[in-house]
Design a protein around this nucleic acid. Structure first.
Lengths: 219, 219
DNA sequence: GTCTATATGTCGATAGAC
DNA sequence: GTCTATCGACATATAGAC
C-alpha cells in the first residue's frame, strides 16, 4: 500500500514520515520536560504524548539527553528567526523601534506558556554539565545579537547612541524581562501588566541621562 | 567517654543532638539539591553528604519533599534577617543607602555559590505544585518588604520619593539582579563586573527623570 | 536516635517480532 | 520504522536490630 499508480509522489516518503515523527516527538518532549522537568519526565511519557512508543523514540533519537539538547538548539534558532523578522520590519519602516522591541519580548512571553519553564530547565542542566553550558551560551549569542540590532535604533531615539554599548543594554533589558516574567509567574499581582513597559522606559530614560563611565565630550 | 566528671551539663542533650542532626541534614540537602536538582538528588546522597544514613534522615524529616520545603522557608528567613540588619545600618547612619542596597545584592551573590541553582529548583518546583507556589510567593513577600524599606531612602536621594511606588522599583531591581546573575553564571564575559552597578544607576536615573503614568504636578 | 536490610516500584535503554 | 517485552540499575520509604 506504499506505491501509487500515478506519477505523483507518494503521500509520504519514508524520510518525510521520519521527519514528521521527529517533529511530533520534539513537540511532545518540550511539553513534557516543561511540565515534569528533565529528570522528572520519562521517555515513556514523552513517547506516549507524541502518540508513539518507546521504540520509535529510540529509533529517532539517541536517548533522553539528545532529545533535550535538540530542544535547546531548536529554540535558539526559532528566536533568531523571530528577531530577524522584527529587525526587518523596523528597517522597512513598517514598525517603530520601541514597538518592535516591546513586540520582541511580548511575543516570547505570550506565545508559549511553558517556555520559561523549559528555559529554566535548560539553564539548570547547563550549569551542571560544563559541556552543555558552553553550548547554551553559544546558542544564546545569536538571539542576543538580534536583540542588539533591535536596540540600536531605540538608543538613537533617546539620544544615547554611541554613549553606551548596545550589547550591555541588550543584556540588561533581557535580564530584566526574564526576571519579571518569572516573578509574574510566581506571584502575578506583584508584577502588574504594564510594569515591564514602565521598567523599560525607566531604563532608556536612565541611559539617556547618565554620563558614561568614561565621560564623553559634550557635542 | 560520654560523661564528664565536673558539674557542667552533658556535652549534648538528646534534643540538642537531634537539632544538630537536622541542621547538618538541611545543609547537605541544600548542597545536593543545588548540584543534582530536586528529582536528580537521592535521599541516600543527601544523608551520606551529611554523614548520616537514610534512617536518620527519615527519623528527622517526613521525606524528600519536606526537606525541600524546609529549605525554602529557611532561606526566606535568612534573607529577611539579612535585610533587617542592613536596614538598621542605614537608619543608624552607619551606611549610605546606595552602598547598603549594593551590599544587599552583592552579599546574596557572593555568599553562596549554589544559591541561584537552589532558587531555580524551588521556582520550578513551585510552578508545578500549586500548593507550594502560594507558599513560595508568601515566603518571598517578607524579603521583598525588606528590600522596599531599603529602596525608599534611595528614592529620596534621587528625588523620586512619592513619585513612584517603592514596591514596583524593588520588584524591577530584584528581577534585574537575578536575571543578570543567571546570565553571568551561564556566560561570564557577557556580564562584566560593574554591569549590575551600571544597570542600577540607569534604573534610578530613569526613575528620577520619568514622569509617572498619572502626571504629578510640578512642585 | 541511628543503622542495616529490604520491600516495592519506576526508570532508561535494548532486542527481536512484524 | 515502529511496537512489545524485558533486563539491570536505582529510587523512596519502611521495619527491626542496637
Amino acid at each position: 500500500m506504499d506505491s501509487e499508480p500515478d506519477g505523483k509522489p507518494r503521500r509520504l516518503t519514508r524520510a518525510e514520515a521520519k521527519a514528521r515523527t521527529r517533529r511530533l516527538l520534539l513537540d511532545a518532549a518540550a511539553r513534557t520536560f516543561a511540565r515534569k522537568g528533565y529528570a522528572g519526565a520519562s521517555v515513556e511519557e514523552i513517547a506516549e504524548a507524541a502518540g508513539y512508543s518507546i521504540g520509535a523514540l529510540y529509533s529517532n533519537f539517541g536517548g533522553k539527553e539528545e532529545l533535550f539538547i535538540e530542544l535547546m538548539v531548536g529554540g535558539a534558532k526559532a528566536r533568531v528567526e523571530r528577531g530577524r523578522r522584527i529587525v526587518a520590519a523596523v528597517q522597512d519602516g513598517t514598525e517603530e523601534p520601541e514597538q518592535a522591541l516591546g513586540r520582541f519580548f511580548m511575543e516570547a512571553a505570550d506565545k508559549d506558556d511553558d517556555l520559561p519553564l523549559l528555559q529554566a530547565e535548560l539553564w539548570l542542566y547547563a550549569m551542571r554539565n560544563p559541556r552543555l553550558k558552553e553550548a547554551l551560551a553559544e546558542a544564546q549569542r545569536e538571539p542576543q545579537a538580534a536583540l542588539e540590532a533591535l536596540m540600536e535604533p531605540v538608543l538613537e531615539r533617546v539620544g544615547a547612541a554611541g554613549a553606551v554599548p548596545p550589547s550591555a543594554v541588550a543584556t540588561v533589558a533581557s535580564a530584566m524581562f526574564q526576571g519579571l516574567l518569572r516573578q509574574r509567574r510566581l506571584d502575578p499581582p506583584s508584577v502588574p501588566d504594564d510594569l515591564l513597559r514602565q521598567a523599560m522606559r525607566w531604563l532608556f530614560t536612565g541611559i539617556a541621562n547618565t554620563p558614561g563611565p568614561s565621560a564623553e565630550e559634550p557635542s
